[in-house]
Design a binder for these strands. Structure first.
Lengths: 251, 251
DNA sequence: TAAATTTGTCTATTGTTCTAGACAACTAAA
DNA sequence: TTTAGTTGTCTAGAACAATAGACAAATTTA
């Protein structure tokens, strides 16, 4: 059934009325509060117009940066405040974003066992060329990808890492399955650069977008390195928060 | 030169943008403050659109009652608050409306010398059939007609009344030219009825409109009647205000 | 893999808005 | 009376908005 608020022949195009209304309802959280918009057909039915009219309205909001449409998946709310990703001694993906977003998830894009590159070997305190497990993961919040990480682990110590992550979708949980109950962030380096082709695809970015890159080393409670990772965050969706020195006790 | 505030392809029709803007500027007094709108061509040029587009905007405001268009004359601001026409011992047309409106004016529609009808003779304390001057006048405020009066004067005492009014466009000034320095309102009777054909034409009313009719007698400072008049006010443009008994001293 | 869901693209048609020009009708001023 | 200025009406076409249907492309689910 059609809504009452859409007026025809009013001098204001239907798509403009619908776009204005959707923007307002998104702002109020009345629609797309989970980050996902109803399908175009549902909106068309709700407003009593043709699907193409709704598409024109959506296109206007995409242009404004309010929405983002993904073929085959749906239309999502864009342009909300950046999520604050805290970097501290105990940096955990889902803990850090919990409360700020819904639909937190991480998935495994690829994994391999390879000889450690120099950087990785040095960070993990392994001999160059030692076997390491490389995990390519991607994380989502509010139904949109926010980060893409490439992590390396000592292949001997964390043998079933890829499988454990595939089951649990969590580094923390995978570590626990493999006998590592706790780990701490030893160091984090932050840089920024333009998104490359891989970022564009995996993070659904537009050409020219910026990614924040963190290079991090996690260590166990003994101080031995357990993970070296390079993470790319979509800079328009995430900001990194480094708490002051006093906020958290050192490990 | 075109205004900057009119956006094309915005989903809001040009005529709607122009109508909204004109309504606002009228309310602020920035346009049509004298009751008269610029010609359609001037508006079209100002907004950088075709004359027909301006006409659509005007038609919308006419529909709202904000404007009134008169073929051959122009477009005028309508629907403002009724002007308050005060009725007191010293009732003077232009004094009463001064400060409420601009463009006050009165013009002579017709005049004649005739034998006094019974009502008129009684009011003017003349013998029935005595010669009287009949003046048909019309008054404007804010560029629109507000009243239409038929007045009778003693033809002997006020011989050149029609000519004096024709020169001065004012009963008060005409009286003064003819030696009557001051006069007072003796009585006023108010009724209301539907506009007749003459009202429709002279006051530019729509069929079904209402006119307030006042029947008044003015007297000189001696108490002798000098004017008998029947005035028809456009009820949607004028309201009559009769001050309380204490507001003005009796003559 | 297959089916269902969802967004993207294309064609065609209809209705609305805007432009353009001409002329009629009316008013006011010269 | 004539002229200029103004609103009213008509026709025609271009640009934009909305509808309708079909199918492609991508993703998710069964």
């Amino acid at each position: 059934m059609a809504e009452t608020m859409i007026e025809r022949r009013s001098g204001v195009a239907l798509w403009r009325q619908i776009a204005d209304r959707m923007r307002r309802e998104i702002g109020e959280g009345a629609i797309g509060s989970d980050g996902r918009m109803p399908p175009e057909m549902a909106l068309a039915e709700r407003f009593g117009v043709n699907r193409h009219t709704v598409r024109t309205a959506i296109a206007a909001l995409v242009q404004e940066g309010v929405l983002r449409a993904e073929q085959g998946r749906g239309t999502f709310v864009e342009g909300r405040k950046r999520l604050a990703y805290p970097i501290r001694n105990r940096t955990r993906f889902s803990e850090g974003l919990a409360g700020q977003s819904r639909g937190l998830a991480a998935d495994l894009l690829a994994h391999a066992v390879e000889a450690a590159p120099i950087d990785v070997a040095r960070a993990l305190m392994l001999a160059p060329g030692s076997p390491v497990i490389r995990l390519e993961t991607r994380s989502h919040a509010d139904g949109r990808p926010v980060s893409r990480a490439r992590s390396w682990f000592d292949a001997q110590r964390f043998c079933g890492m890829a499988e454990a992550f595939g089951r649990t979708h969590s580094i923390t949980a995978a570590f626990r399955e493999l006998g590592l109950a706790d780990y701490l962030r030893q160091s984090t380096t932050v840089t920024a650069r333009h998104a490359d082709a891989g970022d564009l695809g995996d993070l659904k970015l537009s050409p020219g977008a910026i990614v924040l890159v963190t290079i991090a080393i996690n260590v166990d409670t003994e101080g031995s390195p357990v993970q070296y990772s390079e993470t790319r965050f979509a800079a328009d969706r995430i900001e990194l928060h480094i708490p002051g020195a006093g906020t958290e006790a050192a490990g």
